[in-house]
Design a protein around this nucleic acid. Structure first.
Lengths: 193, 193
DNA sequence: CCTACCGATCGGTAGG
DNA sequence: CCTACCGATCGGTAGG
Protein backbone atom coordinates (compact mmCIF):
# COMPACT_ATOMS: atom_id res chain seq x y z
CA UNK A 1 0.00 0.00 0.00
CA UNK A 2 2.75 2.35 1.01
CA UNK A 3 4.38 1.83 -2.39
CA UNK A 4 1.12 2.35 -4.22
CA UNK A 5 0.75 5.71 -2.48
CA UNK A 6 4.33 6.71 -3.31
CA UNK A 7 3.79 5.70 -6.93
CA UNK A 8 0.69 7.89 -7.35
CA UNK A 9 2.29 10.75 -5.42
CA UNK A 10 5.27 10.71 -7.80
CA UNK A 11 2.95 10.76 -10.79
CA UNK A 12 0.77 13.58 -9.47
CA UNK A 13 3.54 15.73 -7.96
CA UNK A 14 5.30 15.41 -11.32
CA UNK A 15 2.39 16.51 -13.47
CA UNK A 16 0.68 19.00 -11.15
CA UNK A 17 3.30 19.91 -8.57
CA UNK A 18 3.19 19.66 -4.78
CA UNK A 19 0.93 22.65 -4.17
CA UNK A 20 -1.22 21.68 -7.13
CA UNK A 21 -1.93 18.20 -5.76
CA UNK A 22 -4.20 17.59 -2.76
CA UNK A 23 -3.81 14.52 -0.61
CA UNK A 24 -7.48 13.86 -1.43
CA UNK A 25 -6.55 13.51 -5.13
CA UNK A 26 -3.74 11.11 -4.29
CA UNK A 27 -6.02 9.05 -2.04
CA UNK A 28 -8.62 8.86 -4.83
CA UNK A 29 -5.96 7.71 -7.31
CA UNK A 30 -4.87 4.96 -4.93
CA UNK A 31 -8.44 4.01 -4.08
CA UNK A 32 -8.44 4.71 -0.36
CA UNK A 33 -9.79 7.45 1.92
CA UNK A 34 -7.79 10.49 2.94
CA UNK A 35 -7.32 9.54 6.62
CA UNK A 36 -6.01 6.15 5.51
CA UNK A 37 -3.32 7.85 3.46
CA UNK A 38 -2.42 9.99 6.47
CA UNK A 39 -1.99 6.83 8.51
CA UNK A 40 0.95 5.81 6.28
CA UNK A 41 2.43 9.31 5.90
CA UNK A 42 1.70 11.53 8.87
CA UNK A 43 1.41 14.71 6.83
CA UNK A 44 1.56 15.99 3.27
CA UNK A 45 5.03 17.43 3.94
CA UNK A 46 6.19 14.04 5.22
CA UNK A 47 4.90 12.41 2.02
CA UNK A 48 6.83 14.90 -0.05
CA UNK A 49 10.02 14.21 1.87
CA UNK A 50 9.68 10.49 1.32
CA UNK A 51 8.95 10.90 -2.39
CA UNK A 52 12.05 13.03 -2.65
CA UNK A 53 14.15 10.58 -0.66
CA UNK A 54 12.87 7.65 -2.70
CA UNK A 55 14.02 9.24 -5.96
CA UNK A 56 17.30 10.47 -4.56
CA UNK A 57 18.40 7.20 -2.96
CA UNK A 58 18.76 5.64 -6.39
CA UNK A 59 21.67 7.96 -7.20
CA UNK A 60 23.35 7.63 -3.87
CA UNK A 61 23.71 3.90 -4.58
CA UNK A 62 24.12 4.06 -8.35
CA UNK A 63 26.64 6.89 -8.79
CA UNK A 64 29.57 5.12 -7.08
CA UNK A 65 29.02 2.04 -9.23
CA UNK A 66 28.69 4.09 -12.39
CA UNK A 67 31.85 6.09 -11.83
CA UNK A 68 33.87 3.04 -10.82
CA UNK A 69 33.09 1.25 -14.06
CA UNK A 70 35.94 1.43 -16.54
CA UNK A 71 34.67 1.88 -20.05
CA UNK A 72 36.27 2.78 -23.34
CA UNK A 73 33.69 5.56 -23.62
CA UNK A 74 33.12 6.97 -20.11
CA UNK A 75 31.31 10.01 -21.50
CA UNK A 76 28.87 7.94 -23.51
CA UNK A 77 28.08 5.46 -20.76
CA UNK A 78 27.56 8.18 -18.17
CA UNK A 79 25.13 10.16 -20.33
CA UNK A 80 23.34 6.94 -21.24
CA UNK A 81 22.80 5.98 -17.58
CA UNK A 82 21.66 9.50 -16.73
CA UNK A 83 19.20 9.64 -19.62
CA UNK A 84 17.87 6.13 -19.03
CA UNK A 85 17.09 6.78 -15.39
CA UNK A 86 15.14 9.96 -16.06
CA UNK A 87 13.49 8.71 -19.23
CA UNK A 88 12.32 5.58 -17.44
CA UNK A 89 9.83 7.87 -15.68
CA UNK A 90 9.78 11.50 -16.86
CA UNK A 91 8.08 12.47 -13.59
CA UNK A 92 11.49 12.06 -11.96
CA UNK A 93 13.01 14.95 -13.86
CA UNK A 94 9.82 16.98 -13.54
CA UNK A 95 9.94 16.60 -9.77
CA UNK A 96 13.66 17.40 -9.75
CA UNK A 97 13.04 20.66 -11.62
CA UNK A 98 9.99 21.52 -9.51
CA UNK A 99 11.92 20.97 -6.29
CA UNK A 100 14.72 23.25 -7.48
CA UNK A 101 12.12 25.95 -8.12
CA UNK A 102 9.95 25.37 -5.02
CA UNK A 103 12.61 24.69 -2.38
CA UNK A 104 15.95 25.97 -3.68
CA UNK A 105 17.56 26.13 -0.24
CA UNK A 106 16.61 22.58 0.65
CA UNK A 107 17.79 21.15 -2.67
CA UNK A 108 20.99 23.16 -2.45
CA UNK A 109 21.70 21.66 0.94
CA UNK A 110 20.99 18.09 -0.16
CA UNK A 111 22.99 18.07 -3.38
CA UNK A 112 25.77 20.02 -1.73
CA UNK A 113 26.14 17.33 0.93
CA UNK A 114 25.38 14.22 -1.08
CA UNK A 115 26.36 14.83 -4.68
CA UNK A 116 29.27 17.28 -4.57
CA UNK A 117 31.98 14.69 -3.85
CA UNK A 118 30.98 12.82 -6.98
CA UNK A 119 30.94 15.89 -9.15
CA UNK A 120 34.40 16.69 -7.82
CA UNK A 121 35.51 13.27 -8.98
CA UNK A 122 34.22 13.87 -12.50
CA UNK A 123 35.68 17.36 -12.76
CA UNK A 124 39.07 16.07 -11.58
CA UNK A 125 38.82 13.39 -14.22
CA UNK A 126 38.17 16.04 -16.88
CA UNK A 127 41.14 18.03 -15.62
CA UNK A 128 43.30 14.96 -15.99
CA UNK A 129 42.16 14.58 -19.59
CA UNK A 130 43.14 18.20 -20.10
CA UNK A 131 46.69 17.51 -18.93
CA UNK A 132 47.02 14.35 -21.00
CA UNK A 133 45.87 16.31 -24.02
CA UNK A 134 42.62 14.53 -24.94
CA UNK A 135 40.38 17.26 -23.52
CA UNK A 136 40.19 20.83 -24.84
CA UNK A 137 42.12 23.44 -22.90
CA UNK A 138 39.57 26.21 -22.52
CA UNK A 139 36.90 24.11 -20.75
CA UNK A 140 35.58 25.01 -17.31
CA UNK A 141 34.94 21.50 -15.96
CA UNK A 142 32.47 22.44 -13.23
CA UNK A 143 30.27 24.63 -15.46
CA UNK A 144 30.51 22.05 -18.21
CA UNK A 145 29.13 19.33 -15.93
CA UNK A 146 26.30 21.54 -14.70
CA UNK A 147 25.29 22.42 -18.26
CA UNK A 148 25.29 18.82 -19.42
CA UNK A 149 23.11 17.78 -16.48
CA UNK A 150 20.85 20.72 -17.27
CA UNK A 151 20.46 19.58 -20.86
CA UNK A 152 19.65 16.01 -19.85
CA UNK A 153 17.10 16.87 -17.16
CA UNK A 154 15.65 19.65 -19.30
CA UNK A 155 15.23 17.36 -22.30
CA UNK A 156 13.35 14.73 -20.33
CA UNK A 157 11.30 17.22 -18.25
CA UNK A 158 10.19 19.70 -20.93
CA UNK A 159 11.84 18.57 -24.15
CA UNK A 160 8.51 17.54 -25.63
CA UNK A 161 7.16 21.05 -25.06
CA UNK A 162 10.17 22.85 -26.54
CA UNK A 163 10.25 20.46 -29.48
CA UNK A 164 7.04 22.08 -30.71
CA UNK A 165 9.31 25.00 -31.60
CA UNK A 166 10.32 22.74 -34.43
CA UNK A 167 7.75 20.14 -35.39
CA UNK A 168 3.99 19.63 -35.17
CA UNK A 169 3.70 16.06 -34.03
CA UNK A 170 6.49 14.79 -31.90
CA UNK A 171 7.08 11.09 -31.80
CA UNK A 172 10.64 10.29 -30.81
CA UNK A 173 11.89 13.88 -30.92
CA UNK A 174 13.47 13.07 -27.57
CA UNK A 175 15.75 10.53 -29.21
CA UNK A 176 17.13 12.93 -31.80
CA UNK A 177 17.58 15.66 -29.18
CA UNK A 178 19.53 13.25 -26.96
CA UNK A 179 21.74 12.35 -29.92
CA UNK A 180 22.46 16.04 -30.55
CA UNK A 181 23.09 16.50 -26.82
CA UNK A 182 25.77 13.81 -26.94
CA UNK A 183 27.32 15.37 -30.02
CA UNK A 184 27.45 18.81 -28.39
CA UNK A 185 28.85 17.31 -25.19
CA UNK A 186 31.61 15.46 -27.01
CA UNK A 187 32.53 18.33 -29.32
CA UNK A 188 32.86 20.70 -26.37
CA UNK A 189 34.87 18.21 -24.34
CA UNK A 190 37.32 16.37 -26.60
CA UNK A 191 39.98 17.70 -28.93
CA UNK A 192 39.18 14.99 -31.48
CA UNK A 193 35.73 13.44 -31.70
CA UNK B 1 -2.21 49.86 -9.88
CA UNK B 2 -2.71 47.26 -12.58
CA UNK B 3 1.05 47.21 -13.17
CA UNK B 4 1.81 46.95 -9.49
CA UNK B 5 -0.40 43.87 -9.31
CA UNK B 6 1.28 42.33 -12.37
CA UNK B 7 4.69 43.03 -10.87
CA UNK B 8 3.93 41.25 -7.59
CA UNK B 9 2.17 38.41 -9.40
CA UNK B 10 5.28 37.82 -11.53
CA UNK B 11 7.45 37.81 -8.44
CA UNK B 12 5.23 35.43 -6.48
CA UNK B 13 4.30 33.09 -9.35
CA UNK B 14 8.03 32.85 -10.05
CA UNK B 15 9.09 31.93 -6.55
CA UNK B 16 6.07 29.93 -5.36
CA UNK B 17 4.24 28.92 -8.52
CA UNK B 18 0.65 29.54 -9.58
CA UNK B 19 -0.97 26.95 -7.32
CA UNK B 20 1.36 27.92 -4.49
CA UNK B 21 0.31 31.57 -4.57
CA UNK B 22 -3.10 32.75 -3.34
CA UNK B 23 -4.63 35.97 -4.66
CA UNK B 24 -4.80 37.01 -1.01
CA UNK B 25 -0.98 36.85 -0.83
CA UNK B 26 -0.66 38.94 -4.00
CA UNK B 27 -3.18 41.50 -2.69
CA UNK B 28 -1.24 41.76 0.59
CA UNK B 29 2.02 42.30 -1.30
CA UNK B 30 0.43 45.08 -3.33
CA UNK B 31 -1.26 46.59 -0.28
CA UNK B 32 -4.90 46.26 -1.32
CA UNK B 33 -7.81 43.96 -0.45
CA UNK B 34 -8.59 40.80 -2.38
CA UNK B 35 -11.84 42.03 -3.98
CA UNK B 36 -9.95 45.09 -5.24
CA UNK B 37 -7.48 42.86 -7.03
CA UNK B 38 -10.35 40.92 -8.56
CA UNK B 39 -11.77 44.18 -9.90
CA UNK B 40 -8.66 44.58 -12.11
CA UNK B 41 -8.33 40.90 -13.06
CA UNK B 42 -11.66 39.11 -13.01
CA UNK B 43 -10.23 35.80 -11.84
CA UNK B 44 -6.96 34.17 -10.80
CA UNK B 45 -6.81 32.35 -14.14
CA UNK B 46 -7.24 35.66 -15.96
CA UNK B 47 -4.36 37.14 -13.94
CA UNK B 48 -2.16 34.22 -14.90
CA UNK B 49 -3.01 34.67 -18.57
CA UNK B 50 -2.09 38.34 -18.45
CA UNK B 51 1.18 37.68 -16.61
CA UNK B 52 2.02 35.13 -19.26
CA UNK B 53 1.03 37.44 -22.09
CA UNK B 54 2.99 40.32 -20.56
CA UNK B 55 6.22 38.28 -20.53
CA UNK B 56 5.66 36.77 -23.93
CA UNK B 57 4.89 39.99 -25.77
CA UNK B 58 8.45 41.15 -25.26
CA UNK B 59 9.72 38.42 -27.56
CA UNK B 60 7.07 38.83 -30.18
CA UNK B 61 8.35 42.39 -30.68
CA UNK B 62 12.04 41.84 -29.92
CA UNK B 63 12.79 38.68 -31.91
CA UNK B 64 12.22 40.19 -35.38
CA UNK B 65 14.51 43.11 -34.54
CA UNK B 66 17.15 40.84 -33.07
CA UNK B 67 17.25 38.50 -36.04
CA UNK B 68 17.27 41.35 -38.56
CA UNK B 69 20.36 42.90 -37.01
CA UNK B 70 23.50 42.08 -38.96
CA UNK B 71 26.43 41.49 -36.66
CA UNK B 72 29.89 40.09 -37.13
CA UNK B 73 29.05 37.65 -34.31
CA UNK B 74 25.39 36.66 -34.69
CA UNK B 75 25.80 33.78 -32.26
CA UNK B 76 27.27 35.96 -29.52
CA UNK B 77 24.74 38.76 -29.84
CA UNK B 78 21.81 36.38 -29.86
CA UNK B 79 22.90 34.55 -26.72
CA UNK B 80 23.67 37.86 -25.07
CA UNK B 81 20.18 39.24 -25.73
CA UNK B 82 18.57 35.99 -24.56
CA UNK B 83 20.59 35.90 -21.35
CA UNK B 84 20.12 39.59 -20.60
CA UNK B 85 16.35 39.40 -20.87
CA UNK B 86 16.02 36.46 -18.52
CA UNK B 87 18.72 37.60 -16.14
CA UNK B 88 17.10 41.02 -15.86
CA UNK B 89 14.42 39.27 -13.79
CA UNK B 90 15.07 35.59 -13.04
CA UNK B 91 11.35 35.16 -12.30
CA UNK B 92 10.82 35.26 -16.06
CA UNK B 93 12.68 32.03 -16.65
CA UNK B 94 11.22 30.47 -13.53
CA UNK B 95 7.71 31.21 -14.80
CA UNK B 96 8.64 29.93 -18.26
CA UNK B 97 9.82 26.62 -16.80
CA UNK B 98 6.85 26.37 -14.44
CA UNK B 99 4.41 26.97 -17.29
CA UNK B 100 6.03 24.25 -19.38
CA UNK B 101 5.54 21.85 -16.46
CA UNK B 102 2.08 23.00 -15.38
CA UNK B 103 0.41 23.58 -18.75
CA UNK B 104 2.42 21.76 -21.42
CA UNK B 105 -0.41 21.70 -23.96
CA UNK B 106 -1.05 25.42 -23.68
CA UNK B 107 2.63 26.35 -23.94
CA UNK B 108 3.07 23.99 -26.84
CA UNK B 109 0.23 25.69 -28.68
CA UNK B 110 1.52 29.20 -28.01
CA UNK B 111 5.16 28.66 -28.97
CA UNK B 112 4.13 26.53 -31.91
CA UNK B 113 2.04 29.39 -33.30
CA UNK B 114 4.16 32.37 -32.29
CA UNK B 115 7.79 31.27 -32.09
CA UNK B 116 8.16 28.50 -34.65
CA UNK B 117 8.60 30.76 -37.70
CA UNK B 118 11.54 32.44 -36.00
CA UNK B 119 13.19 29.20 -35.02
CA UNK B 120 12.80 28.09 -38.62
CA UNK B 121 14.67 31.21 -39.66
CA UNK B 122 17.57 30.46 -37.34
CA UNK B 123 17.77 26.78 -38.30
CA UNK B 124 17.79 27.73 -42.00
CA UNK B 125 20.59 30.15 -41.24
CA UNK B 126 22.57 27.37 -39.56
CA UNK B 127 21.97 25.13 -42.56
CA UNK B 128 23.36 27.85 -44.82
CA UNK B 129 26.48 28.01 -42.69
CA UNK B 130 26.76 24.28 -43.13
CA UNK B 131 26.77 24.61 -46.91
CA UNK B 132 29.23 27.47 -46.90
CA UNK B 133 31.53 25.40 -44.70
CA UNK B 134 31.71 27.49 -41.52
CA UNK B 135 29.35 25.23 -39.57
CA UNK B 136 30.05 21.61 -38.63
CA UNK B 137 28.42 18.97 -40.80
CA UNK B 138 26.97 16.59 -38.23
CA UNK B 139 24.83 19.19 -36.43
CA UNK B 140 21.06 18.82 -36.09
CA UNK B 141 20.08 22.52 -36.22
CA UNK B 142 16.65 22.18 -34.60
CA UNK B 143 17.84 20.08 -31.66
CA UNK B 144 20.86 22.34 -31.30
CA UNK B 145 18.66 25.43 -30.93
CA UNK B 146 16.39 23.72 -28.39
CA UNK B 147 19.38 22.63 -26.28
CA UNK B 148 20.96 26.09 -26.30
CA UNK B 149 17.67 27.68 -25.21
CA UNK B 150 17.39 25.00 -22.53
CA UNK B 151 20.84 25.83 -21.20
CA UNK B 152 20.12 29.56 -21.06
CA UNK B 153 16.72 29.29 -19.38
CA UNK B 154 17.98 26.54 -17.10
CA UNK B 155 21.00 28.56 -16.02
CA UNK B 156 18.94 31.59 -15.07
CA UNK B 157 16.08 29.60 -13.50
CA UNK B 158 17.96 27.03 -11.43
CA UNK B 159 21.64 27.61 -12.13
CA UNK B 160 22.23 28.93 -8.63
CA UNK B 161 20.86 25.70 -7.17
CA UNK B 162 22.87 23.39 -9.42
CA UNK B 163 26.00 25.45 -8.86
CA UNK B 164 26.04 24.16 -5.28
CA UNK B 165 27.15 20.90 -6.89
CA UNK B 166 30.41 22.70 -7.23
CA UNK B 167 30.92 25.53 -4.75
CA UNK B 168 29.72 26.53 -1.31
CA UNK B 169 29.04 30.20 -1.71
CA UNK B 170 27.93 31.30 -5.11
CA UNK B 171 28.52 34.88 -6.05
CA UNK B 172 28.70 35.30 -9.79
CA UNK B 173 28.67 31.59 -10.59
CA UNK B 174 26.07 32.51 -13.19
CA UNK B 175 28.61 34.57 -15.11
CA UNK B 176 31.16 31.78 -15.41
CA UNK B 177 28.44 29.27 -16.36
CA UNK B 178 27.19 31.60 -19.10
CA UNK B 179 30.76 31.91 -20.42
CA UNK B 180 31.08 28.13 -20.55
CA UNK B 181 27.66 27.96 -22.21
CA UNK B 182 28.87 30.24 -24.99
CA UNK B 183 32.05 28.20 -25.40
CA UNK B 184 30.07 24.95 -25.67
CA UNK B 185 27.64 26.55 -28.10
CA UNK B 186 30.42 27.83 -30.37
CA UNK B 187 32.48 24.65 -30.27
CA UNK B 188 29.46 22.56 -31.22
CA UNK B 189 28.44 24.96 -34.01
CA UNK B 190 31.51 26.23 -35.83
CA UNK B 191 34.31 24.34 -37.53
CA UNK B 192 36.83 26.87 -36.29
CA UNK B 193 36.25 28.84 -33.13
C1' DC C 1 -8.38 1.13 6.92
C1' DC C 2 -13.04 3.82 7.74
C1' DT C 3 -16.79 7.55 9.27
C1' DA C 4 -17.41 11.83 11.06
C1' DC C 5 -15.82 16.07 11.85
C1' DC C 6 -12.56 20.35 12.65
C1' DG C 7 -10.87 25.31 11.77
C1' DA C 8 -8.53 27.73 8.17
C1' DT C 9 -8.13 29.16 3.74
C1' DC C 10 -9.35 28.97 -1.04
C1' DG C 11 -11.37 31.75 -5.23
C1' DG C 12 -15.07 34.58 -5.92
C1' DT C 13 -19.64 37.69 -5.40
C1' DA C 14 -22.98 41.36 -3.65
C1' DG C 15 -23.37 45.77 -2.89
C1' DG C 16 -21.90 50.15 -2.00
C1' DC D 1 -11.31 50.48 -3.93
C1' DC D 2 -13.76 48.51 0.55
C1' DT D 3 -16.79 45.48 4.02
C1' DA D 4 -19.22 41.52 4.47
C1' DC D 5 -20.08 37.21 3.13
C1' DC D 6 -20.48 32.65 0.18
C1' DG D 7 -19.81 27.45 -0.67
C1' DA D 8 -16.04 24.41 -1.57
C1' DT D 9 -11.92 22.49 -0.48
C1' DC D 10 -7.69 22.36 2.11
C1' DG D 11 -4.66 19.49 5.56
C1' DG D 12 -5.44 17.13 9.52
C1' DT D 13 -7.64 14.69 14.01
C1' DA D 14 -10.74 11.69 17.04
C1' DG D 15 -12.15 7.47 17.64
C1' DG D 16 -13.17 3.06 16.42
Amino acid sequence: MRNKILEQAIRLFGSSGFEGTSIQTIADAVGIKKPSLLYHFNSKAKLRDEVYKHLFDHWKSELPKLLATTSEDPFGSFIKALVEYFQDDPNRSKIAVREMLDRPEFVRKVISEELRPWVKLVSDYIRMGKQSGVVVEDIDPESYIILVIMMVIGTVAVGDVLSSLVVQENIDTDKVIIEELKRIGRKALFKKS
